[in-house]
Amino acid sequence: MKPVGKLSTHTEVIMNVWQSPQISRYLDLQNNYVTGRIVNLKTQMAAYFLEKKRPEKKFLTTHPEKDIIIEYPFLIQKTPVHDS
């Protein structure tokens, strides 16, 4: 559990995983995984996690309970490009 703003990038989260450089050799945590966090709004504490990218999964923000948010804060959302 860490304060909500404690980790600010995907790489920072990966570096907090034990033996992540070794694991990344096989799983490529940087490119194949996204960072998610479960936030307790009351305490402003968050549990960070890594989740594998897969086509059927949409990484959307959800509210499973009151004062609890599950979100993917560092996911780069692809925005449609408009021709000027």
Binding site: G36, I38, F49, L50, K52, P64, I68, I70
Partner: peptide, 12 residues
């Protein structure tokens, strides 16, 4: 995490 992962589910 019990709110995120239901029994039988996996993050990867």
């Amino acid at each position: 995490f019990s709110l995120l992962i239901k029994p039988g589910e996996k993050l990867f």
